[in-house]
Computed example of a mutant assay.
Amino acid sequence: MAFASLGAFFAMGGHGPYVWAAWGVTALLMAACVIHARLERRQLARLLMRRARRGSTSQPHQASHADDP
């Protein structure tokens, strides 16, 4: 192992606070991306279900194209 002890590993030669803060921020942002994607997926599924229910009870309005040749 490159470090003499677990304490030396966490200290990282004096750069520990920067290194572990960077790891923490990265992990936090990745978790936030996953949570955000799941929430958006649920919201989209609800929207599509609402549209499907609405569309099954009424026919969409068809525009007449009397001017078409």
Rank of each mutant, 00 (worst) to 15 (best):
M1T: 05
M1H: 07
A2E: 11
F3Y: 15
F3I: 03
A4M: 08
G7E: 15
A8L: 04
F9S: 00
F10Y: 15
A11S: 14
M12A: 10
M12S: 06
G13T: 02
G13Y: 13
G13H: 13
G14A: 02
G14D: 00
H15K: 13
H15Q: 10
G16Y: 10
G16Q: 08
P17M: 01
Y18F: 07
Y18M: 06
V19K: 08
W20V: 00
A21V: 02
A21N: 12
W23L: 13
G24P: 00
V25R: 08
V25C: 10
V25W: 13
T26C: 04
T26N: 05
T26S: 07
A27Y: 09
L29C: 13
M30I: 04
A32C: 05
V34K: 08
V34F: 14
I35V: 12
R38E: 09
L39C: 06
E40R: 15
R46W: 08
R46P: 01
R46T: 03
L47T: 10
L48P: 01
M49P: 02
M49N: 09
R50Y: 04
R50A: 01
R50K: 11
R50E: 04
R51G: 03
R51A: 06
A52T: 05
R53H: 10
R54L: 11
R54T: 07
R54I: 04
G55V: 02
S56P: 01
S56I: 14
T57N: 09
S58M: 13
Q59A: 11
Q59F: 07
P60V: 01
P60A: 05
P60T: 02
H61R: 14
Q62R: 15
A63H: 15
H65Q: 12
H65P: 00
D67P: 04
D68F: 15
P69W: 12
P69A: 11
P69M: 10
P69Y: 10
